[in-house]
C-alpha cells in the first residue's frame, strides 16, 4: 500500500473544500464575532418591534456588543419581549436606554443601547427598563399626510 497521485488530488480537494468553509465562516459570515460561551442574557419589552428579527445586532455607540436571541409576544400586557445575548466584556448601567433603530432608510433594524449614569450594572437575566419602539414607516407617513392635510385647512 503506497501513496499515489490520486491520494494527493483527493487531499488537495478535501483541504480546499474545508478551507472554503472556513473562509465562508470567518470572512463572509459572522463566526469571528461569535462568542457563545462568554455572553450573558438581557431582556427588554417593546410595544412594537417593527422589522426586528432574531440574530439582529445589538450595538452601543455603533459597536457590535451582542445579538438578539428571541422575540416573543408577552401576553401579560401584549407587548414584545426581546431576549438578547451580550458579550461578557461589556457591562451596562441599570438605566441604559434600549432603542430599536434602522441602519439607513431601508436597512436592517437593530437594537441600539445608550448607557445611563447608574452605578449598578445590569446582571444576566435583568431587563432594560427604558425602551423605545421601532419607528414604523407606515405610521410616520400616515402622520405626515394627516398633518399636511390639517395644515391646508
Amino acid at each position: 500500500m503506497e501513496r499515489t497521485t490520486l491520494d494527493l488530488w483527493v487531499g488537495v480537494f478535501v483541504v480546499a473544500g474545508i478551507a472554503a468553509l472556513v473562509v465562508l465562516a470567518l470572512k463572509v459570515g459572522n463566526l469571528s464575532t461569535y462568542n457563545v460561551s462568554e455572553s450573558y442574557q438581557l431582556q427588554a419589552h417593546f410595544t412594537n418591534v417593527g422589522g426586528l428579527k432574531p440574530t439582529a445586532s445589538v450595538r452601543s455607540a455603533g459597536v457590535l456588543v451582542g445579538r438578539v436571541v428571541s422575540i416573543v409576544l408577552d401576553t401579560s400586557n401584549y407587548d414584545a419581549k426581546v431576549t438578547m445575548s451580550i458579550d461578557k466584556r461589556y457591562q451596562f448601567p441599570k438605566d441604559t436606554f434600549a432603542n430599536i433603530l434602522t441602519s439607513g432608510l431601508l436597512g436592517e433594524q437593530y437594537i441600539g443601547l445608550i448607557p445611563g449614569g447608574d452605578d449598578k450594572m445590569l446582571q444576566s437575566g435583568d431587563e432594560f427598563k427604558k425602551t423605545q419602539s421601532a419607528v414604523v414607516l407606515e405610521d410616520l407617513i400616515g402622520k405626515f399626510l394627516y398633518n399636511s392635510s390639517d395644515a391646508k385647512k
Binding site: 468553509l21 465562508l24 463572509v28 459572522n30 469571528s32 440574530t55
Partner: peptide, 19 residues
C-alpha cells in the same frame, strides 16, 4: 462590501444550513 456581508450572514443560520 465585507462589513455588510458579515453583518447579515449568520454562521449557524446561513452557512451551517447551507452545508
Amino acid at each position: 462590501f465585507w462589513s455588510q456581508m458579515q453583518a447579515s450572514v449568520d454562521f449557524q443560520h446561513d452557512i451551517l444550513n447551507g452545508v
